[in-house]
Design a protein around this nucleic acid. Structure first.
Lengths: 200, 200
DNA sequence: TCAAAAACATACCGACTAGTATTTTTTATT
DNA sequence: AATAAAAAATACTAGTCGGTATGTTTTTGA
């Protein structure tokens, strides 16, 4: 195999195992040793491809984490159809589709935001980039709804976007405390009412 | 000084310094050594009063953390006056009143929820107790609004409570990513619209 | 084929971790 | 004042942490 390909493959392996371990045990609680143990490689390999754990954290955020949010929450926003219905579908369907593990461990992005965003500006910037992307896409869809006369024109698209994201990330944290989905159903019910009120 | 009083004073000192350090640097990143350094006492004193770091964590949650939420978000709910106005005041006023540090470091409870709630059932239970208290108090106020005909009767009080808490905790995390209050203003605007729609 | 470079392995470093064992100091009781 | 008990200090353990230095193996290009 070509050297470059092999390198890329190793980096991807490290990234994926890191993402999983960061998600399950948190960033600080996951050591480089544990990550490399999961890859069946050694520390020497790690520090050949990355200069520090911090650099790895940033790479996980801007590749794995970003892709996850884009695929799950942003790309679906570009579908055709009634804007409000789309919003309700995406936010509630995604929540319902989560595995038990994903419910217990919450949102990988929100976890990182709350664990490490206030320890390093670099983490802040990387995570902000994802939230900004998400916000922008939401605003676009809400604006479309306004031009199509399905969404009230006197509300702030950005305020709605922020409120939607906040509630979604918030409930994914709170769900960690419970061992059933009641709280998610309450959230969905609350979301549903909220979106209804936005209809023109 | 009486022995019992001194003991209690020391425990309080440890609890308060722990809360501050957990808040600023996270639970895992705060070692027992660092805590005891902040108290100007030694490790021997710590393990005389607490059996483990985990026990300390639980004590911080059910004393400092609980008190903070009760004082800041629950007790104010029992005031007289229009229920919806009360809700808007409490959720937005509190947000605006936060210091720069409190904006940068987010919500102490939400931080812990996202950092350690999925690592130990005991943490889950302790944190859940706070959220349940908060939810119950919110539901009571919303129910009062219904009986006073200021809040629509066909909405689920619990769903509204959960949605309010979720959005509040969510935005406190997201605010960490930014260095200004724009996001908070967007949230407040979103909240304001949401509450308006609940009015009977 | 051969040397340079890249990929990875091994062994190690000093700093830090939660927790323990033991001793000294302070307080309370008689 | 003597004694016991509580509070706190000191010194330590075995293990983990991120990171480095230096090997060995594999791949590459001439």
């Amino acid at each position: 195999m070509k050297q470059e390909q092999k390198s890329e493959l190793t980096r991807q392996l490290i990234l994926n195992e890191s993402f999983n371990l960061f998600y399950k045990h948190g960033f600080k609680a996951t050591s480089v040793d544990k990550i490399m143990n999961a890859t069946n490689l050694t520390k020497g390999a790690f520090y050949h491809h990355y200069n520090s754990k911090k650099e790895l954290g940033l790479a996980v955020i801007s590749s794995n984490l970003q892709k996850r949010v884009v695929d799950g929450m942003i790309t679906p926003l570009h579908q055709k159809g009634d804007a409000l219905k789309l919003l309700e579908d995406i936010f509630s369907t995604r929540l319902k589709s989560f595995s038990l593990e994903e419910k217990q461990h919450g949102c990988p992005m929100n976890n990182l935001i709350n664990e490490i965003a206030d320890t390093e500006v670099a983490y802040q910037v990387a995570l902000k980039a994802i939230i900004d992307k998400w916000t922008t896409a939401l605003i676009e869809l809400i604006e479309r709804g306004k031009t199509e006369n399905t969404i009230k024109k006197d509300i702030s698209s950005k305020a709605v976007a922020i409120y939607l994201i906040s509630a979604f990330e918030g409930v994914r944290g709170i769900r960690k405390l419970y061992d059933d989905d009641l709280i998610l159903n309450q959230y969905i019910s609350g979301l549903s009412f909220y979106l209804k009120q936005l209809r023109a």
